[in-house]
Design a binder for these strands. Structure first.
Lengths: 271, 271
DNA sequence: CTTCGACTCTCCCCCCGGGGGAGGGTGCAC
DNA sequence: GTGCACCCTCCCCCGGGGGGAGAGTCGAAG
């Protein structure tokens, strides 16, 4: 049916650039209907227009070319739809991160004079039921949800609010060790990923972040400033304790998150 | 006040990576409080934590480093807020483009068997009041709004629905000549950007896109397929005519956009 | 005060998804 | 049959990082 189209005509019909079509060819996303072996000329077929448009629309959704290829190679429509759905979910997560950034900017650009209440606290060792893993910054939220669900299934009578330990590398390098825990009075048997652990005693600089986690980075910064101003230095993974969280109330404004940064005293110097 | 912080400690307090801090330094975004001239070591101050966070949050909004710099250098808070607002508006435009891509994908992945009604039509030359410019793909929407408003102010009695001519390069290369017009019965005097023009007679392959422009690219593809299947080739800028548009009804489902692609007949060949 | 391990420096190459342009081969329409 | 528009490959560029090499520096323990 379709008459053979040169790359230029095909570009006009699909609203893609010639360069982009060549790139999709070499990436194995859109093989021309025919390639002249002597000249290397690419020839397309009008039937390939929808395929080219699917690629273009997926690219508009910032789907990486490799994932586009995976989607196109998936023969089962349902599986293909779920692959696309994953990316849509990723877009929603990005949207919420964008909203959090906007709210953080608002708080940063018109800062409230309310002084931060920080307490230096010596925390004893603590027996907990825990789940640990090394995760990336982008995965930490979904990982947390799964780990906490598993903990809740095992720990029937928690001895306090749940919490997490987050390696500093998780934030600065985007990947690090994470431990989510629920305090317990007695060791729990190993169940799935859940095991007992003892959080070591530390000296913590503690503050409480009020409200949703959208602007928690700002609170981290304020706590960091306090730590620095008091001639302290960071000495280990940060500890968050979810005094009031999503499990307690759906109203994010009521959440209360304790942030504790393990610190040690620097040798005194002038200043 | 603030004690001097090495780049590593500052990275911990701001949750930025060392590499990123160095990049922000060389980009002139975040000058360390002190740089040791002999060793090159960067030393930061705890007071710079908020500045670092502002940069990080703007980067999360995909603000280019150059624009971040412009924002940081702007002393007037109101002007600064408006710069940030521009980027937020850009994000909203991107969001609507994302939604359009999703809807286009839905239409592409479960196509309706409804055959496209295409008509080959010889169109005579037409006298219009027009505004022209060379614009980029990202600017075309806002440019169109301004141009159409100017046209409306000049043309009191239009002789037909408004339309636009769009260079194919606008779509394939992202930049091209655009002409927006309102048909008139008699030439209009030059007023601002508005001037008279005569659209040349052409042979058009015409179809009508129903509904919002979200999925208009899909209709373009179907029209392109029809053009190719009928041994035609594209011969000039596409013509859109807004039979029913935002000016007529707020219900996007009722919009009707005529798409006319100038074509010429290819020399006959087998197939 | 020395030592040594952790920290930091610069420099170069890599990633992605394109765009610009050079230099040279092809095709089609008149 | 010839000219010109088209197409080819190849290399370099962009932004905003990351990885790692190799060398220099800092500072805390002994």
């Amino acid at each position: 049916m379709g008459r053979v189209l040169t790359i230029g005509r095909f570009a006009q019909l699909t609203h893609l650039s010639i360069r982009t079509l060549r790139r999709y060819h070499e990436a194995g996303l859109l093989e021309p209907a025919h390639v002249d072996p002597s000249s290397g000329y690419r020839y397309y077929d009008a039937g390939q227009i929808p395929a080219a448009q699917v690629i273009a629309r997926l690219r508009e959704l910032d789907v990486p070319l490799a994932d586009v290829r995976r989607i196109l190679l998936e023969p089962d429509p349902a599986a293909r739809a779920s692959l696309v759905g994953e990316h849509l979910q990723r877009l929603e997560e990005q949207l919420s991160r964008t909203q959090a950034a906007v709210r953080s900017l608002q708080r940063l650009l018109r800062p409230e004079p309310a002084a931060l209440a920080v307490e230096l606290r010596r925390v004893p060792a603590r027996l907990v039921a825990a789940v640990e893993a090394t995760v990336t910054h982008t995965d930490v939220l979904s990982w947390y949800a799964g780990a906490m669900a598993e903990l809740d299934a095992v720990v029937t009578r928690p001895a306090g609010p749940p919490g997490g330990l987050y390696d500093n590398a998780l934030f600065t390098e985007g990947r690090g060790r994470v431990l989510v825990h629920v305090p317990v009075d007695a060791p729990v048997p190993v169940t799935g990923r859940v095991h007992s652990a003892e959080l070591p005693a530390v000296e913590l600089a503690v503050t409480v972040h009020e409200g949703s986690h959208d602007t928690i980075e700002v609170t981290y910064g304020e706590l960091g400033r306090w730590v620095s101003d008091h001639a302290l230095a960071v000495a280990g993974p940060v500890r968050e304790t979810y005094l009031t969280g999503p499990r307690d109330t759906a109203e994010a404004e009521r959440w209360r998150t304790e942030i504790g940064w393990p610190v040690f005293r620097l040798t005194p110097r002038s200043g």
